[in-house]
Amino acid sequence: MRKIAAIAGITFKEAKRDRVLYLLFFFAAVCIVAARVLAILTVGDRVKIIKDVGLASISVFGILMAVLIGTSLVYKEIDKKTIFTLLSKPLHRAQFILGKFLGLVLTLFIMTLFMSVIFLALVYAHTFRIEWPMLVAIGYIFLEMVLVTAVAVFFSTFSTPILSSIFSLSFVLIGHLSWGLELLIRKMRAGFGKSLARVLYVFLPDLENFNFKTEVVHGLPIPSSIFLYSFLYGLCYTAFILGLAVLVFRRRDFI
């Protein structure tokens, strides 16, 4: 555990030096604050606009941070050959991947925390209260970031940062559109096509499981079983992707 913590610590130190992180944070902050301007220009419930744009900004910029930082950090270790000294120590390759992943998660946690403070302060300035469903929505956005980080780390174990970023962003895109398959399965007749769609749906990510923005903005009730299901889904999918990353990384030669 101490070795994983050491790798996570060095990853956090390296990630927080990345200028891309601060650039994305700056744009996220601008977007969250711009929601206030947008609210003024809109007819209707201003707070809803602030909540909607604010949560969407945290989600979009958080995912971008996960992809851009996640895809470069493992690759950098290989490219700059720091991995040679690390893996010659009594350190399993799985410990290295897990340490990298946890360091990135820590970085994203702090960034999400900062973005959330700006967002919640803005909402508080309008409503004079903080509703717990907003915190839950942010929590699930963070869970999505964790999963995307695992995906970014997985791709970076065998690919360049540019390709890994494209693959990871495609994963996010597919993940947010795959719920359409669920609708399709319901409307299809039983047969090969339906079975194929089911198999596809099982393997393709469904990132809409982490999206509680609409419910929070409009104050709709959310059954607690959905929370639990989404949490377990995120946990299991992340573990599965990290497992794949370890498998690929273990077989890799470092030339």
Binding site: I83, F84, L87, S88, R251, D253, F254, I255
Partner: peptide, 8 residues
């Protein structure tokens, strides 16, 4: 590198 387990 083979000796150190960096290459299989």
């Amino acid at each position: 590198k083979c000796l150190l387990g960096l290459i299989h």
